[in-house]
Each structure stands twice: as C-alpha cells, then as structure tokens.
Computed example of a mutant assay.
Amino acid sequence: MKHSSISPGVRVVDKSDGSSGFVRDDHRDWPATIGAEIEAEKPAVVVMMAGANDRQQFANGQTLLSDEWDKEYQARINAFLEAVKKTGRPVVWVGQPSYKTKSMTNDVLAFNELYRNATEKAGGTFVDVWDGFVDQSGSFTLSGFDMSGQTARLRNNDGIGLTPAGKRKLAFYVEKPLRQMLGNATSPNIAAVKPGAPVQALPGTPQAPVTVDRLAPISLNDPELDGGTDLLGASPRGAPAPEKSARDRLVIDGVAPESQPGRVNDFSWPKQPDATPTTGAVR
C-alpha cells in the first residue's frame, strides 16, 4: 500500500500476483476472492490486468483458444466482473501489450478482445495500450517513445517484462480514465484521503454555491435567437445582388458612366465651367 507520488490524494493498494491468471484457479481464484478483498480495502476503483500467464490449457485438458477453452475462460472473466459489480465499484481492465514472440502476440490479441467485450458489457472501462508498444508497422519493439518523447527501452530482453520507462508509459494509459473517476483526488495538491472518505474540494480553493438561473425556452419563431422569424427548413432568403462596378456596367450592360464636368466624356451643352483650381504662392 502506498501513496502515488504524482497524486498524493490517491492510495494505491497493490494486490497483484505475477503468477496468477484466470486459468490456474488452484493458485489464485480471482472470481472467488476479489469480493472479499474489495470489502476489506474499500477501493474507489478496481484496476485489473491479466493474461500473460493464461496461455495454457485448463486442468480438464481444454486446449488453448479452442471453443471449449474460450467458453470456460469467458465464464471466469464474467464471474470476476460480476463479483466486482456486486460491490458497486467501477472496474478498469488494462489490455495486454504485444510480445516478442509472434505466437504470444497472436494469443494476447485474442485475449484482449475477450477482455474488451466482457468489460464493456459489464459497464466497465477497457484500456487499450497496444499502440504504445509497437512500431510504425504494428510490430513488437523493445524501444519506443517514453513519457518525455525521447526514445527509451520499454521492454526487457525477454520481450515480456517492462522496464521502468515501459511501466510508466503503461500507467499513463490508465491514468486518463482514473482521473475521470477519482476527480479532484488526483490533484497533486490535495492531502491524503482516508479510505472510504468522500473527496472534498482542494484546501484553499473554496467554491461559492453556483446559482443556476432559469433559461428562457427557445422560441419556435426564432430558433437561432438572432431576431429571425423563419424556422429551420424555411426557404433561404435571397442575398442582395452585389452592386456592379462602372467597368462591369460598361462592358456587360453597355451603360457608360455618368459624365463629370471637365472630363473628356462630358458632352453636356452648354458647357459647365471647370472647377476653379486652388492656387498658392510659389516661392
């Protein structure tokens, strides 16, 4: 159990078991035990990631990813999600990344679809981390961009484990839905919150009650609130034709511009006197 260094208001209760999964329930039976653990710890949200140890047959001999295997595996996933749902806690299921061996990558791709479908059906949130651990062609890569945008080693030499930079990157994908669920508890300025205590506003930032004014209903005669009177779908009003220039009136319409006194096109009779030019002393 520890406080997040980034969000002190969040306590992380680590109940992970690196050797567990949903196939070997003799080692750890997640559907049967998760309910009691949630009641004991009273977390605000449950985060689950599994699958790396499930690439094996069941004790009754069902072959990996056969129809019978799929049916049994889905049943155990659904049982886990149902146990979490009964506690009233939301669940965030983190998908698997790609792996070095092609066969393992293909298997976890199939697992991810099972996790996604089951989680979303149960009203949970599935976090897809796949794109963060493949290259531009979609293939497994040991290195990639870290959280600072620099190229870093993300995976161990075995092509399975994550380096510290890889773990931080995977956590980044999970932070977004968690921030939405935990609200201001994720602020770095909030004090530690006791288990089960409601999240309060940040100290030093009191919030005045919000006054909600009644909004006037939108008028059917003026849906755009711009003074117009036509409803949506009415015939558009014709825009006024642009005024033609003197050149267009002459070339297109054959209408010469009006003559001005003193110009060469002044054919008026009798002649009008020219405007008296302004004179000035020249030195």
Rank of each mutant, 00 (worst) to 15 (best):
K169Q: 08
M48W: 09
A171P: 07
D54P: 02
A122G: 10
Q207C: 06
N221K: 08
L250C: 04
K244I: 12
K102T: 07
R28W: 03
E68T: 09
F145S: 14
A241V: 06
T205W: 15
R263M: 15
K42S: 12
N189M: 15
V84D: 00
G9N: 06
I160Y: 07
W269H: 08
R214V: 10
I38K: 01
S103C: 02
V108A: 06
N156T: 13
W269E: 13
V255P: 00
V12N: 11
P198N: 06
F133M: 03
T151P: 05
A165H: 00
S187T: 09
F22C: 01
V10A: 03
T33A: 12
F140M: 04
G238C: 08
F145Q: 14
L225Y: 11
E41P: 05
L231H: 13
I34V: 13
R247I: 14
G233K: 07
G138L: 01
Y99E: 08
A256R: 14
L250F: 14
G18M: 01
L142F: 14
T211N: 10
I34C: 08
A110T: 09
P217A: 02
R283Q: 10
N156S: 11
G95T: 00
G280R: 12
S4D: 15
N78M: 08
G228N: 08
A191S: 11
N184Q: 13
L215F: 12
P270M: 10
A241E: 12
Q207D: 07
S268V: 14
M181K: 04
M104W: 12
A52E: 11
G228C: 05
N112M: 04
S16H: 05
A201G: 15
Y99A: 03
G159S: 04
G61Y: 01
V45R: 03
T151I: 14
H3L: 12
K85I: 02
K85G: 05
P242E: 13
M181H: 02
E120V: 10
V199H: 01
D67T: 11
S66N: 03
D213K: 15
P217R: 11
A75T: 06
G18V: 00
P8H: 05
D14K: 11
V127C: 04
F172R: 13
A79H: 01
A83S: 04
T279P: 07
T186S: 07
S268L: 13
V23R: 00
T63Y: 04
S187G: 09
R153H: 09
